[in-house]
Design a protein around this nucleic acid. Structure first.
Lengths: 163, 163
DNA sequence: GGCTGGTCATTAGGTCCCTAACTATATGGT
DNA sequence: ACCATATAGTTAGGGACCTAATGACCAGCC
């Protein structure tokens, strides 16, 4: 994830900014960045990226599907899925085959090796999930998630307006 | 920013996961992603990336400095700074020159064109900041930021433990 | 004074993501 | 049946990030 951080004295220099809003925005990106980095580090030994891990999970949980369908679930373009599958296929975790019913499309399937990796991956991630949120009560988490949902709604409408 | 999202029925398939923790993690990344995309779209007409905009801001607010110093502020490696500066310099927003005091290092400086772009950039970003957080009171923002800080602290200690 | 170890920036090569453009195939309306 | 349109996947090209290796240079220690 791209790293972004405010200079410490940003606010001194930019008096017209809404300080709290800027701080919320910067910290949102910063937090996600730290989280993404942590996940990446946890998964590196398995030779899978965070995105690749999600692909494996989706394939195991929902069975074989087309690259397009994967892209919809991941909220990523088809072109991106192509790259992810190239990488996963190189590592033997996934297999592409033709779809008899529609010759435009493919069917992607997780391999036995992919299932093994996925199992290890989930174990690792869930173990650490508990660690990094250990100081949060369920109520805290719910409150936090509520904020995130509100921001997402807000962003979605601003994005629509912006195009 | 990398996009990550849970399959809707992830929890049915993975009963050992801490549902709230997973949801918090996924939504954190998802929110930051949406935010980053929005900022990128707002800045595109100016031919500056979000990261490039930060570089310009730092240079204006703190004066000329070395690529290393920029990297420290951005929390990014020197190699990444090299790429960012390449791009900014191509657009004439920044200038690299020799440092007489230490011939290993360079001094990066914002150009007049860079200052102009920075001004437009800040105007645009702050305008939209108000829009996407309009439904949040100051108390809301403070509460949200507090959660983010707690998570960042937690992530920092987990990351240390993990290496 | 010369050696050694650290730091500066860059390059090379890799990942994940994007948009735009291309090819092949499917399908719905006439 | 035919053509316009839409969809599937890939490719080409670009941005931001990383690590590892390289060549310059600086500074402290014998």
């Amino acid at each position: 994830m791209r790293k972004i951080q405010m200079p410490e004295d940003f606010y001194d220099q930019t008096p017209d900014a809404n300080i709290l809003a800027t701080e919320a925005a910067m910290n949102t990106i910063r937090t996600a960045d730290m989280l993404f980095d942590l996940i990446g580090r946890l998964l590196r030994p398995l030779n899978v990226s965070a995105a690749g891990g999600l692909v494996l999970g989706i394939l195991r949980d929902h069975g074989p599907m087309s690259p397009s369908a994967l892209g919809e679930r991941l909220i990523v373009t088809r072109a991106t899925v192509t790259g992810l599958l190239d990488s996963l296929e190189r590592h033997g975790l996934v297999r592409r085959s033709a779809n008899a019913a529609d010759r435009r499309s493919l069917v992607v399937q997780i391999t036995p090796a992919g299932l093994t990796v996925l199992q290890e991956l989930r174990t690792i991630v869930h173990r650490d999930e508990k660690a990094w949120l250990s100081t949060f009560s369920d109520a805290d988490l719910r409150g936090y998630i509520t904020y995130l949902h509100r921001i997402q709604d807000s962003l979605a409408s601003v994005s629509e307006a912006t195009g």
